[in-house]
């Protein structure tokens, strides 16, 4: 076990086998046979996956490996062709996104979805769970929800202060920089008080100056007892903060393990550099891109099909 992880990693991880789909002692998410086909391409084909509770798990892999698609599947934004998965023992297959979120499994998006035309504090307030002021019948009667709103605002202000966004409180979220948007989205997700927070490329497009503080924030999530699952390309970040790494390639999990072990794994190097070292890299990239494009297109179609049903 890598020494530098010792101070934060849960002891549970030490005994876990470094094989794809390995069993975890205290899994918060357990999935089986999750597949998602886009035309001729299997975007996701995961035999078994477990996410350990209370640690930071990184999901890495080359472009088109199916990471975001897996996120979409797990959180109900996309529907798989086959598969079952559960969160805290709750079966989640065909559960709509907002119910998944209510169970305590909240995600962010690769292209941040801050609500640009709402102020930062309104974005935060929106995240709070179970607001009685959001009920149509009570909304017009402020005395029914005012104190609750004040409590939510207080909590929001605390989070904004923690994420150093308090100076931007009244600004339109659209005026924030890319990194601040990532922070706001993360803070907003925390307003839901999730048990598992899923971050889709939290570092993408973030100003290097902000990176360190973002890393700190992700770690602090774990330290307050939440489980974190994140997709990332930035290997430094993965090495720095994750306790466990799952590697995907071409829709499948190809390796699992602690960061150092995984980075030394030939299967992972294969996945990133192409299974055949002699094949032309640019060609492989092209294929991956093609696959990604196709996946997107199908996702759109499929997505509209299942929306709201």
């Amino acid at each position: 076990m890598a020494a530098d992880l010792g101070k934060t990693a849960r002891p549970d991880l030490t005994g876990i086998e470094h094989v794809p789909g390995s069993k975890k002692p205290d899994a918060i998410v357990v999935g089986d046979h999750i597949t998602r086909q886009f035309g001729g391409l299997k975007a996701v084909d995961v035999g078994h996956i477990e996410i350990q509770r209370g640690v930071i798990t990184a999901l890495i892999g080359p472009n088109g490996a199916g990471k975001t698609t897996l996120f979409n599947l797990l959180t109900g934004f996309d529907t798989p062709d086959t598969g079952e998965w559960s969160f805290n023992g709750h079966p989640l297959a065909r559960v709509v996104p907002h119910k998944v979120a209510r169970l305590g499994m909240v995600r962010t998006f690769q292209l941040t979805k801050v609500l640009a035309k709402l102020s930062v504090i309104e974005n935060m307030r929106l995240g709070a769970k179970g607001q009685s002021g959001e009920s149509f019948l009570k909304a017009a009667l402020p005395f029914l929800w005012r104190s609750e709103e004040a409590r939510n605002t207080e909590r929001a202000d605390e989070l904004l202060a923690r994420f150093k966004l308090d100076a931007k409180r009244e600004d339109f979220a659209g005026s924030l920089s890319g990194g601040q948007r990532k922070l706001l989205e993360m803070a907003r997700a925390l307003m839901v008080d999730p048990e598992l927070i899923m971050l889709d490329e939290p570092m993408a497009g973030v100003n290097p100056a902000l990176k360190q503080s973002l890393l700190g924030h992700v770690k602090s999530l774990r330290d307050e007892g939440r489980t974190v699952l994140f997709v990332e390309h930035d290997m430094d970040m993965v090495r720095d903060i994750s306790d466990w790494v799952i590697v995907m390639a071409q829709g499948q999990i190809v390796a699992e393990g602690t960061p150092d072990a995984v980075m030394a794994d030939p299967a992972v190097i294969d996945a990133y550099l192409g299974a055949h070292h002699d094949t032309d890299l640019s060609e492989m990239d092209e294929k991956a891109l093609e696959a990604e494009a196709e996946a997107e297109l199908e996702a759109e179609l499929h997505d509209t099909e299942t929306k709201g049903s």
């Binding site: 959180t75 934004f77 709509v96 996104p97 907002h98 119910k99 979120a101 209510r102 909240v106 995600r107 962010t108 998006f109 979805k113 801050v114 609500l115 640009a116 035309k117 709402l118 309104e122 307030r125 929106l126 995240g127 769970k129 959001e134 907003r188 997700a189 307003m191 839901v192």
Partner: peptide
């Protein structure tokens, strides 16, 4: 506030439960 949020991005609102 929820309606205005939906106007902007439904998926973001969904992701918040």
């Amino acid at each position: 506030r929820l309606l205005r949020a939906i106007r902007e991005d439904e998926d973001a609102v969904r992701s918040l439960g």
